[in-house]
């Protein structure tokens, strides 16, 4: 056990799985870098250095730099998964799903069902998401609700380094296609991560805080905000349960309903746009199945219904940060500041 960043945890998961299973390969744009170029090889190790060092260790046959051709290589990863490899493809920014979505939702997601169960497609698509990098509208979106909508896909949203390593190892070992969302603002986040390989099962939420007054259900990076808010409010006499569902597909509805019922006051925090996102999904679930346990209307804290703005002044307003979460918790428990 030692302190590692989110970036190091993901790199370690990839390395250990590639050591364990020769069928695991990784591919993507500049995941090593410098291919065919006169200068440094492994020049980038991915745009934010997540895969750095893997090409020198495993060689270019298992660490495949691709041209900028998302339909081509995401489709190739899907085809390779259906024919014996266990590819981990990197879709640099999830915003680029628009140029390869067919390969994900019409091909990978449906093979098993369309082919009567006689196919496995163990592909992992790692992708960067989220606001906070001043990367503007086409490099900052969440979009995991889109993937969560598709039967056949699994969707993981690790909220810290420990979760990142264990969920990525599970993603690679899983026989279904998994979309693995890495929040770009968390790569330098540090946490205790065991040196040995371990897998965190999908569909089992992590209850990170236990409280009596309100239940905050948060996704991905928002879990950290929710934890901070819960810690702050606990000193002011408001104790919160915080639920990190870990995966949006499968979704641990049991823990969500149980923890919602326990406090009867629910805040759902989702960095995605507000229409048809995880917040609406979870709020609807609770309203449908635990309505009689609610003591106050459910509050949803989400990004607004606009593209992610560029200017720091605007982007900071866009992100559903701790202040908004705190205000929502205070509203559901009826205790103003």
């Amino acid at each position: 056990m030692s302190k590692k960043t989110y970036r190091q945890a993901i790199n370690e998961a990839l390395r250990q799985e590639m050591e364990r299973d020769e069928r695991v390969i990784i591919m993507g744009e500049d995941i090593a870098g410098g291919l065919g170029s006169p200068g440094e090889q492994d020049a980038w190790g991915g745009p934010l250095g997540v895969t750095k060092g893997l090409m020198p260790k495993f060689g270019r046959d298992r660490v495949l730099d691709t041209p900028i051709t998302e339909s081509g290589f995401i489709g190739a990863a899907v085809g390779a998964a259906a024919t014996g490899l266990r590819p981990v493809a990197e879709l640099m920014f999830v915003d680029f799903f628009g140029v390869c979505f067919d390969q994900i939702f019409n091909q990978a997601a449906k093979f098993k069902y369309m082919f009567g169960g006689k196919a496995v497609t163990p592909v992992v698509i790692r992708t960067m998401y989220g606001a906070g990098f001043r990367a503007a509208s086409q490099h900052s979106q969440c979009l995991y609700p889109v993937f969560t909508h598709i039967p056949g896909l699994k969707v993981a949203l690790p909220s810290n380094p420990y979760e990142a390593k264990g969920l990525l190892i599970q993603s690679i070992r899983d026989d279904d296609p998994v979309i693995f969302f890495e929040h770009k603002a968390m790569y330098d986040l540090e946490g205790e991560v065991p040196d040995e390989p371990y897998a965190i099962p999908f569909g089992e939420a992590n209850v990170t805080r236990e409280g009596d007054d309100a239940t905050i259900i948060a996704f991905g990076r928002m879990v950290n905000f929710a934890n901070d808010v819960a810690d702050k409010l606990s000193k002011q006499g408001i104790s919160c349960t915080v639920v990190d569902p870990r995966t949006t597909s499968p979704l641990d509805t049991e823990t969500i309903l149980e923890t919602a019922a326990e406090t009867g006051r629910v805040v759902v925090v989702d960095e995605a746009h507000p229409r048809c996102n995880m917040a609406t999904d979870v709020a609807a679930l609770i309203a449908q199945d635990a309505f009689d346990k609610l003591k106050a209307p459910i509050k949803m804290v989400t990004a607004p219904h606009c593209p992610v703005p560029f200017s720091p002044a605007l982007e900071d307003l866009y992100i559903p940060g701790p202040d908004k979460i705190e205000a929502a918790v205070r509203a559901v428990v009826g205790k103003a500041h």
Partner: peptide, 8 residues
């Protein structure tokens, strides 16, 4: 794209 994967 799928057969690129199978060929890979």
């Amino acid at each position: 794209p799928l057969i690129c994967g199978a060929a890979l």
